[in-house]
């Protein structure tokens, strides 16, 4: 292989690796869960709010009463959202905008909205979402012999 061709190959590989790395950053998906639940931090209690509407890109993704949870999905490490807080019936809504950074390695985060509105530190209102473990039977998901070997859908040996 001559030098020019080798250089061309190397540059191609580097460009592809760079594009791949960019895709890994901008395409990393996260699920954000919004909680409207009471929160205790350093001995002080932050009560759940009567009604919180969550908007992402101008579209309402959750309408939360007390003790409710909503969710939205996003790609990348930054997530912007707006909320409308209604503390009392027929009261004028208070509007807030937030821009949070999501750690790359975490699939889902839970955001406590009353804690966020109270401007507590991030550690108080953000935590990782860990799905509840589900018990599954082992054999159910293992492909049967026919599924693996038989491409013609007739079953048995071919």
């Amino acid at each position: 292989m001559n030098k020019r061709r080798l250089l061309f190959c190397l540059i191609t590989v580097l460009v592809l690796v760079a594009i791949g790395a960019c895709m890994m950053v901008i395409g990393r998906g996260h699920t954000i869960y919004f909680d409207n639940k009471s929160l205790e931090y350093e001995g002080q209690k932050y009560e759940a709010i009567r009604r919180i509407n969550v908007n992402v890109n101008g579209e309402q993704v959750a309408k939360l009463s007390k003790k409710e949870r909503g969710m939205a999905t996003t790609m990348g490490q930054g997530f912007k959202f707006d909320i409308e807080v209604i503390r009392e019936k027929d009261a004028e809504p208070e509007r807030y905008s937030f821009d949070i950074r999501i750690p790359y390695g975490i699939d889902g985060i839970v955001v406590n909205l009353p804690g966020m509105i109270a401007e507590l530190p991030q550690a108080a209102w953000m935590e990782e979402f860990i799905p509840a473990p589900t018990v599954e039977e082992e054999e159910d998901e293992t492909p049967a012999e026919g599924d693996v070997m038989d491409d013609f859908g007739v079953g048995g040996d071919l």
Partner: peptide, 14 residues
């Protein structure tokens, strides 16, 4: 790796 959308498709191609 939870790479979604078009970036996921591009990364899979690469």
């Amino acid at each position: 790796w939870q790479i979604w959308g078009i970036p996921g498709v591009v990364l899979a191609c690469i």
